[in-house]
Structures are given as structure tokens and as C-alpha cells.
Write a protein that binds this DNA or RNA. Structure first.
Lengths: 234, 234
DNA sequence: CGTAGGTTTGATGGGCATCAAGGATAGTGG
DNA sequence: CCACTATCCTTGATGCCCATCAAACCTACG
């Protein structure tokens, strides 16, 4: 096992008032007065690639807000293989089911160095009781999860393997106007797209030969967005 | 176009207090006093197979509770084909995004004769403001949608076509202890499983030859649950 | 330097899409 | 009442795409 890559580090107690990503995060709707309702500590936790925020079946004690990095939500299949059902990016929320007192439905694992805020479920519940704005915020988070799940199915689990890879690349780039994107292990790619590791590898190699992808560094590529769009449409 | 099969019929104004499925429906958490908060009409609407509850892109004005029948949530792809992303059964809720004032994300179409309650979004909002129990209920509905979406991906879009058909059959039977299940058009089956109409047809035919399915009537089959379980595991 | 984990590439075969044609069923109109 | 059509389901033939098995390569690290 790789030592440093499966670690999580406590980074201090969060100062929500001054949070740099507050406008995109779960607490974006809160006003100054609302923070008085928070009586439990909200920790900032840093996860290295491979580290788990939580595991499927764990009692859900907290919700996580992703501030930087990338997190995969994994579900394990009967035959032991895994399927990635969603990706969480800065501003997204992991483990909402904890608010309902349920067990976690997935295993959440950081794909890149990821900074999170860990918010105990009691804090969310107290805020939800006290402020209607928090309610709305929670419902929007859930709705966003549903949207992402549906989009995942229709764009990454539909059509040929090349089209899926192309759509994944476009998805990783969107909202970053840059044509640059950072990939991850081929095994993870396969688990996202419902194809084998070899197929994922072959297609990336093919895109590189065709000049659609240009390697910039380890797993960093410049993308020909137009070409990808054409392939994604297939 | 077939005349009678694309109709919706108003069946009267709902009597929520006396609703037979209230314990499983959206209003299960309401107490008698809460009903005073409802000032808009809640209609009972019956949809025949093929009729749409709403279309993707329509402004979301109401939420629908499914009381009997079966509803498919469809998303249309770039190439004009369709993908079914979820099935709603009695007790499920369609169009939750309306509560947030968003447009509908799918087209919802009845697969069987389906009785629904149409609840205007203002009613839900008013109840949500007034009663915390309604809040919890809404969040649970959303969480259920996410769960179903994830399960759909991992069980109906993963593995070989035979395994997918087997899992679909098991899913249609579960919670009905009976080994009997009602199928639908092969095209819909294909759109659920991410395979072609022909493949769906072939596999059903094969299951029948092998005695795993026995035809009882038009699209009604008795299932060998054990055998299906074995195939689903593959 | 040697090993381990991951990536790439090749060879092969099977599963499923595709194209095409032949039944089955129900509804329509003469 | 019976052709006649439309729609859906079924079945066949063919070929491609991708899973599978296997081996070579590459990089990091002890």
C-alpha cells in the first residue's frame, strides 16, 4: 500500500463566515445571524488521492462540502467490481443521506488532493429547522444529485465506447473555459464508463494518435474540443 | 395515432384525508390540521398508456403522486432516440423539480393505466413552510430518487444483456411476493436496458424457450425467480 | 537493481448492433 | 364479414465492437 496516498489530515476548524467558496457551497444561503445556530465544530479535512471520506454502510454522521479537488462516489457490484456513479467537484456535497439519518449509500474516495468541510448532521438539521433558506438549499442539492445521476446515465452509459470517452472529457472540461483537462487512472475511467480498463486505455491512445489529445504532463492533456464534440454526438 | 390510448381523464377532486394510499404517498406525514393549509385544488387524474403527465422543458407547475399503475421517465438523446432513466410505481412522486420552480427534467409517460394526484407547487410550498414533517417527507422523496437512479445505473446498465433483462424482471416483481410480472413493449425494454429492441426481444424469447418465463397472457409472465437470480448475478 | 502496480499493445472470440424479412394482432373501411 | 393496413414482435444473416487473455513496457520506490 502506498503510504502517503491514503491519508486524511485535519486542517483546523472552519471559519464559515470567511469561507472563500461560501457562495457555491452548502451554506451559501446563510446570513450572519444564522451562524449562531451552529454549536458543533465544522472541521476542514484534507484528503489525499485514494483516501475515503466515508464508506458504504457507515452510519451517516456528517455531510461533506467539497471545496477543492475531485471525489468519486463508488458502488460495489456483486462480482466484486466497482462502478462509479458520480463525480463531485468544488461546490458539490457528499453524503446528503446523513441528514436523513441513513447509512451512506456509496464509498466516497478522493481522486485528487481534496479539501472538504465536514459538517455534522446535527448542525444541518438545526439550521434546516431554523432557516427556510437552508431548506431550499438542501432541496437544491438533492435535485442536483438527481440531475447529475440522470446525466451520468444518458451521457456516460449510452452509445459506443469512443463517444463515452469523448463525453467524459467534455464533462471534465466544462465550466473551465480552458481546453485542458486532467485525467485519472484507466481503471477509474473504465468504472465510470462501464467499459474495461483496456478499452479505456486503447481509446485514449487512439485519440492521442489522431491529435485530439496532446499530452502535457502525467495525465494532463490538451483537448480538441470540436473533434470531441463530433465524436460525442455519435 | 391510436385514439383512446393517449388520453388523460379528470377523475374529480381528491379527498386527501380519506386517500387509500396516503401512508405511502407524499402526504403521509400530514396531520389533520395540516390539511387546512391546502387552498388549491388537488385533482385526481387518470392517464391511459402512452399519455404524458408532462413533457421535458415544460414549466413545472405541479407534482404528481402515483397511486396506481406505472410511469416511465424519459430523456431524449441527441440522435433522437430515447433512454428511460427511471420507473415510478404506486407511492412514488413525479416532477419534484417543480417544487424548486424549475422546468421538468424528463417526459413522464404512463406505461399502464395510471391514477395520479396532481398537486400544484404552491400547495407543496405552503405545506413545506408550515410543517417540518412535510420537509422531511420531501427530502426523503428526493433521496429515494437518487437511490433509484443509482440502482438503475448499477443494475440495468451494467453487465451483459441477459443479466440486465433478468435484473429488470426481478425489479418488476420485488415487493410483490408473486412470481408473476407484467412486461411492456420491447422498445421500452430496450430503452431501459441500453440495448436494441431486437436484443430485448431475443432474450425474452430465449428465456421462454428455457422455461424461465411462461406466458400467462399478453405480456404477462410467470417467472422462475431462482433462475433469474442466477443469471442476474453474471 | 529488482520488484510491484499500472499502462499499453496484440490476438482472438463472442456478444450485440445492424439490416432485412417474415409473422402476429388489432383496428379500419369497403 | 373479410381483405387491408399499420404496428409490433420475432427470427435470421452478417459484421463490428469490445471483453478477454496474455505479454511487454514503464515508472516509482524500496
Amino acid at each position: 500500500m502506498r503510504g502517503k496516498s491514503i491519508e486524511a489530515a485535519w486542517r483546523g476548524q472552519a471559519e464559515c463566515h470567511a469561507c472563500g467558496v461560501r457562495e457555491t457551497a452548502l451554506f451559501s444561503a446563510l446570513r450572519e445571524a444564522d451562524f449562531a445556530l451552529i454549536h458543533l465544530p465544522i472541521d476542514e479535512i484534507q484528503f489525499e488521492p485514494g483516501a475515503a471520506l466515508y464508506h458504504v454502510g457507515d452510519p451517516g454522521q456528517a455531510v461533506f462540502t467539497v471545496r477543492t479537488g475531485l471525489v468519486k462516489l463508488v458502488r460495489y457490484l456483486a462480482d466484486g467490481s466497482q462502478r462509479i456513479v458520480r463525480l463531485l467537484r468544488p461546490g458539490d456535497t457528499a453524503g446528503l443521506e446523513a441528514v436523513l439519518g441513513q447509512e451512506y449509500e456509496h464509498t466516497a474516495i478522493a481522486l485528487r488532493p481534496t479539501l472538504t468541510c465536514r459538517i455534522p448532521r446535527e448542525v444541518v438539521n438545526r439550521l434546516a429547522e431554523g432557516t427556510p433558506r437552508m431548506h431550499a438549499q438542501l432541496m437544491q442539492r438533492w435535485q442536483r444529485s438527481v440531475q447529475q445521476a440522470d446525466a451520468w446515465l444518458t451521457s456516460l452509459s449510452t452509445g459506443g465506447a469512443k463517444a463515452r470517452v469523448a463525453r467524459l472529457l467534455l464533462l471534465l472540461m466544462d465550466e473551465g473555459a480552458a481546453t485542458e483537462c486532467e485525467l485519472f487512472g484507466r481503471e477509474d475511467m473504465g468504472a465510470m464508463l462501464g467499459v474495461t480498463t483496456e478499452t479505456a486505455s486503447r481509446i485514449v491512445a487512439e485519440f492521442r494518435r489522431e491529435g485530439i489529445l496532446t499530452e502535457l504532463g502525467p495525465n494532463r492533456y490538451a483537448c480538441d474540443v470540436a473533434a470531441l464534440g463530433r465524436i460525442a454526438g455519435t
